[in-house]
Each structure stands twice: as structure tokens, then as C-alpha cells.
Design a protein around this nucleic acid. Sequence first.
DNA 1: TAAAAATACTCCATAGGTATTTTAT
DNA 2: ATAAAATACCTATGGAGTATTTTTA
Lengths: 139, 139
Amino acid sequence: MELRVLNYFLTVAREGGLTGASEVLHVTQPTMSRQIQELEEELGQKLFIRTTRSMVLTPEGMLLRKRAEEILEMAERTKSEFSAMGSTVAGDVLIGSGETFALKQLTDLMAQIREEYPGIHFQIYSGNAEEVAERLEKV
Amino acid sequence: MELRVLNYFLTVAREGGLTGASEVLHVTQPTMSRQIQELEEELGQKLFIRTTRSMVLTPEGMLLRKRAEEILEMAERTKSEFSAMGSTVAGDVLIGSGETFALKQLTDLMAQIREEYPGIHFQIYSGNAEEVAERLEKV
DNA sequence: TAAAAATACTCCATAGGTATTTTAT
DNA sequence: ATAAAATACCTATGGAGTATTTTTA
């Protein structure tokens, strides 16, 4: 069961037939036919009752329609979130460090992160643990 | 973005690396590597920070983990629903019909439905509209 | 130097297409 | 007679595998 096929299924349900759905999604009618058949086989249920004029959902098909709508909507929202955030990440990173923190490890980590995310801005405060804790809390 | 790849992604996140994840899912390490790279490309975001010892999620990766968990869980539940219902459909269908309803159409439809779902049981009440409505309401 | 990720290819499964047949109105 | 689904067959994209190289702790 893949998102692509669930979308085929929903489109057939909406359009009421393979031909209409295949036009909407720009795939051929036999491709849709096979994918729907394979989906029915995978789920062990007939999803549509076929007449030569149209395809109407069975009760099981109606159940799948609800589920598929939920799943695809969530997937679409996720893709939107990612396309909305663009391809850059920016922000402030505040790092507090006591004497005991290994400075080399820290700078290496920063270099690594900056390589991935040039938009990140670092601020480092050094001192004893109490001083550091206090400065971090002010932010 | 397909369910298969989202599952790859979650497994890499859980196992902390490609090698472990590929063993869990019985695919090879280079296959996982490519699929994750393509997912990152599709979403326009680095999802993991790679060290040679492990792969840890970026903030964007953490977001996708939440979403992917929701999506896959919903898909799994859906598949479970269908496998639980087995491959038979049974039930009672009660049809009320006034004189004017075309009997041939009705019996044709029943034959068609029974062909798909042998477990369905039909009951037909005939009479005037009021009588039919009353009997249907009793059920 | 060891353990893991990335690359470079090769292969094949299957998604997708074209042509045709079947079916029911 | 027509409009739609199904079937048969072919093509090709990309998912997956094998072998190897690169990287860094």
C-alpha cells in the first residue's frame, strides 16, 4: 500500500470511474485499472462495484476512502510544512560551558553544524557553572 | 514521498544509522543510503547529521519523525482493519419497495451484489409506500 | 584501523504505456 | 453503437543489489 496508489483510489472514487480519474492524474486507463485491482487484492476486498458505465464504492471502499483521505491529507500537510520552511535553517544557538567542557569538541561540533546550516548564529558564554546558568536563564 | 521510504526513514532514526536499519528491514545499506538522500532532496532539508559512526536527526528530521509516525500508524491501522475483516462480507439488506419500483432493476441489482458478496441476505417487502415505510422503521 | 556512509556500476521488478477485446447500455 | 473496464503484451524507470571507495573517531 503506497501513497501514490491511495491517491489513484481516491481519484477513481471521486470521478466515478477509471477513465475520468486517469485523465485527472495523467496516467492511462489500464494503469489505473491494474493498480486498483492490485490494491483490492492486497486488502482482500472488492473496493468498487463495476458496471460498464461507472464504478461505485462498496461498503469496504467507503471505509478505505475515509482512511485514505486522512492519510493523504496528513502526508500533504507534511510536505507543505517542509516546502514552507524553504531550504534554509536559521536561528540563534546559545551555548553555556563550564571550564570542564572540552573546547575542541565544542568547536568541532559548531563547525559541523554551521556547515549544514550557515544561517545558525552561535553565542558562547564561558565561566563557572553558576555564572553560565544565570546567563542562560536571562534569555 | 511514499510509505515505504517513510518507514526506511523511521527505522534509520530509531537504529541511529543506515547499517542497523538496513539489517532490520532486510535491504542493503546502499539502498537505504540512496532512499534517504532522495527523501532529503525531495523535502529540501537535511534530515540527519552524519558522522562516520552514526546518523542523528536534525530539527527538521525530528519534525518528520513525528509526522511519519502518525502517517504510518494510520496506514498500519487501516491495513489491520482490512485484514481483520477477512475476505468475506455478510449482513442483512432490507429493501422496501412500492408498486412503482421497477422489479427487474431491483432483482438485477441484487443478483449483481450477491455475486460479489455471497454472505449478503436480502429481505424484500412489497406494498404501498406507507406499509413499506412502517415495516422498515421497525427494524 | 575499523566501522560506517557514500559512490559507481549492474540488474530486475514493476509501474506505466499501446493495442485490443470484452461488456453492458 | 458506444463508452467504459479489462486483458495482453511491451517498455523503461527507478528500486535494489554487489563491489568498492571515502571518511573520521
